[in-house]
C-alpha cells in the first residue's frame, strides 16, 4: 500500500462528505424558505437547494460526477423511501376504498392521457428520443419515475427535473383548471392532482382539504405502481 493511494481515497471521501453536508445544509435552508412562503408550490425546496449547488459547481468548474460521490448516498435512500410509500397508502386506502370505481376509471384515464400526451407532444415538436423517453413518466412520483425512465432508456436525472416542474405546474394551476371544467368534488380534485402532479400536487391538495389530500396521496401511489408496470411493457411492445 502506498501512502499516496490512501491519501487520495481519504481526500475523495472528505470531499464527498463535504458535498453531502452542503446539500443537507442548503436543504434545511430551503425548507425554511418554503415554510416562510407558507408552502407555496413555487418555493420548491428541491429547486431552492439544487440551483445554488449547480451554480457553485459551474463557477468552481467541478464536474457533476465529483459532486455525485456525495449525492449518491441520498439517491440510495430514495429506494427504501419509495417502499415507505406503502405505509400511508395502506392507512389511507381504508378511507377511500368505497370510491374504488371512480378511482379505477380516473387512474386509467389520467395515466393514459399523461403518458400519451407527453410522448406525442414531445415527439411532434421535434424533441430528441432521450428527451421523449425522459418525459414519458413525468406525472409519476419522482423515485418511481426515475426507475421507469431508466427501464425505457430515458435519463433519470432529466425525468426527476420534469416531475418536479410538472408538480409545480399542476399544483399552481389545478384550482383554476378544475374551476374551468367544473370539477367541484373534493375527492375528484384530489385524485386528479395526485395522478397528474405527484407529491407536489398532493401537498397542494392537503392545503385544500384533508379529503382532497388523502385521495391525492392514494392517486399518486396507484399511478406510480400502474405506470411502472404498464409503461415499460408498452414501450417494449411498440418500439
Amino acid at each position: 500500500m502506498s501512502d499516496i493511494g490512501g491519501d487520495f481515497i481519504f481526500r475523495g471521501m472528505a470531499e464527498a462528505l463535504g458535498w453531502l453536508t452542503l446539500t443537507i445544509v442548503l436543504y434545511i435552508a430551503a425548507r425554511r424558505v418554503q415554510s416562510a412562503a407558507k408552502g407555496n408550490p413555487l418555493a420548491n425546496s428541491v429547486l431552492l437547494a439544487a440551483v445554488p449547488i449547480m451554480m457553485i459547481l459551474t463557477v468552481a468548474d467541478v464536474p457533476v460526477s465529483q459532486y455525485q460521490e456525495g449525492g449518491i448516498v441520498l439517491l440510495w435512500i430514495l429506494g427504501p423511501a419509495t417502499v415507505a410509500l406503502a405505509v400511508p397508502f395502506f392507512i389511507n386506502f381504508i378511507h377511500v376504498r368505497a370510491a374504488w370505481k371512480p378511482m379505477a376509471v380516473a387512474l386509467l384515464v389520467g395515466s393514459v392521457v399523461a403518458v400519451i400526451s407527453s410522448v406525442l407532444i414531445g415527439h411532434l415538436l421535434g424533441a430528441s428520443i432521450e428527451t421523449v423517453r425522459s418525459l414519458a413518466p413525468k406525472t409519476v412520483t419522482t423515485p418511481i419515475a426515475m426507475g421507469i425512465s431508466e427501464e425505457i432508456g430515458g435519463i433519470p436525472e432529466l425525468t426527476a427535473a420534469f416531475v418536479i416542474f410538472t408538480g409545480i405546474i399542476g399544483a399552481v394551476a389545478a384550482s383554476a383548471v378544475f374551476k374551468l371544467v367544473g370539477v367541484s368534488d373534493a375527492r375528484a380534485r384530489g385524485f386528479g392532482m395526485g395522478v397528474a402532479a405527484g407529491g407536489i400536487g398532493t401537498a397542494r391538495a392537503f392545503q385544500e382539504s384533508l379529503i382532497a389530500g388523502t385521495f391525492s396521496g392514494v392517486g399518486m401511489t396507484l399511478n406510480g405502481i400502474i405506470t411502472a408496470i404498464l409503461l415499460p411493457l408498452l414501450w417494449l411492445a411498440f418500439s
Binding site: T23, A49, M54, G71, L74, L78, T142, E157, A160, G199
Partner: peptide, 12 residues
C-alpha cells in the same frame, strides 16, 4: 423526500 431529489436535480 425532497432532500433525496436534490442530487438528481443537480445531475441535470
Amino acid at each position: 423526500l425532497n432532500l433525496f431529489y436534490v442530487p438528481a436535480g443537480v445531475g441535470v
